[in-house]
């Protein structure tokens, strides 16, 4: 099994705070992490490799510091890693990101499976996975909750996808791209041996010049159909809370129940 896992380094958005005076994000001290959904993709890749043999290659597009995320993936057990980093890639939206990643995957050669997290927690779009699949012309199975069956001989895979109404069981042919949800597994921590391997590994950095088959007009800001025109703080909900106070818990509960019944929401 030749498995490619696409990962993104993101700021831990749960740690992000807003400066109340300027309304800007306080990013100092906010740790950069592997997008949590991508860690499930890495784990699933490692499990498949342990079961079927082969190798796991992690690939990421981002600024030079995204190398940290790749090293962490290697420390977890990935065999190889590639960083796509170039000023030409900067300002990419999801279309250009998927294009660039798929060009790099083409350069890597034959593969059986591509794994991605269902979405990144900073952008929350979930569009890059389907974009890569379409660029490469392979099947996509999004929101995968469980790999039921994988047969490298007949090159088929059966998965359960987590949808609103329940779980859909789908079969497709390899090569395929899967995006995975949180409940698929419990990602392992990096190991000490893996940490040593990661710190000693020379991870190649590819720029636009390393993707000669690609149309460079589709990279980065100029290749991105969407443009951000305005960034602003989320509107505050009109908050006028009525705090219910009473002598006893039962009395407070009774007052609240009456008020909610009066609101006609029950």
């Amino acid at each position: 099994m030749n498995i490619i896992v696409c990962i993104k380094q993101v700021p831990d958005t749960t740690e992000v705070k807003i400066n109340p005076e300027t309304g800007t994000l306080i990013r100092e001290g906010v740790p950069s992490i592997i997008n949590p959904f991508d860690t499930y993709a890495i784990e699933e890749g490692l499990r498949l490799k342990e079961k079927f043999g082969g190798k796991v290659t992690v690939i990421s597009m981002g600024p030079p510091q995204a190398m940290e995320a790749l090293k962490e993936a290697v420390a977890m057990g990935a065999d190889e890693a590639i960083l796509l980093s170039d000023k030409a890639f900067a300002g990419s939206d999801t279309w250009a990101t998927a294009y660039t990643l798929s060009q790099a995957i083409k350069k890597l050669g034959e593969f059986d499976l591509i794994l991605c997290g269902k979405q990144a927690i900073d952008g929350d779009t979930g569009q890059v996975g389907p974009g890569i699949a379409r660029q490469l012309g392979i099947s996509q199975l999004t929101y995968v909750f469980k790999i039921r069956h994988l047969d490298p001989e007949s090159r088929t895979i059966v998965v359960e996808r987590l949808l609103e109404e329940g779980r859909e069981v789908v079969e497709t042919k390899l090569p395929a791209l899967l995006t995975v949800v949180k409940d698929i597994n419990q990602p392992r921590y990096p190991t000490f041996l893996g940490i040593r391997r990661a710190t000693r590994m020379q991870i190649p950095v590819w720029g636009a010049a390393d993707l000669p088959g690609a149309d460079s007009s589709k990279f980065g800001l100029k290749g991105s159909p969407t443009q951000v025109v305005r960034v602003f703080n989320p509107p505050k909900r009109e908050g006028k809370v009525e705090i219910i106070q009473a002598d006893s818990v039962d009395e407070a509960a009774s007052i609240l129940a009456d008020k909610l019944l009066a609101e006609k929401v029950i």
Binding site: W95, G126, Q127, P130, G131, R134, Q140, Y143, R161, E164
Partner: peptide, 20 residues
């Protein structure tokens, strides 16, 4: 889930912008 799955694929093929 289906809408996002579909939109990502369609927009990629059409080479157009998609906002999630």
């Amino acid at each position: 889930s289906r809408g996002r799955d579909l939109a990502g694929s369609v927009a990629t093929e059409l080479y157009t912008g998609l906002t999630a």
